[in-house]
Amino acid sequence: MAKILAVDDSASMRGMVAFTLRGAGHDVSEAENGQLAVDAAKGARFDLVLADVNMPVMDGLSMVRELRTMPEYKGVPILMLTTESHTDKKMEGKAAGATGWLVKPFDPEQLLATVKRVLG
């Protein structure tokens, strides 16, 4: 069981991610945007962060940059949930400090497989 933070402004996407991961026994917290995610991350140490790219208030890229300035989030896997399969868009996330990505659409099995891959 891992502590996972799911960040997405879309309640349906967030719900799907959280539901799936909880079903697999993980302890999932949710945040609606990057700013709320950073706030949540300050209070708890997550093993994995899954975040949408396009969000109001603070987008996913700024969120990753912010998290990577926190010593306790050094090395913590952060995956971007992106609809972009273009390399340059993925690389933007990587450059900001993301670990990798999961391309939308994904179904619960793909999500679980990716999470398992990251958490080992």
Partner: peptide, 8 residues
Amino acid sequence: DCRIADLA
């Protein structure tokens, strides 16, 4: 927990 974030 002997990992990157706690190595200092």
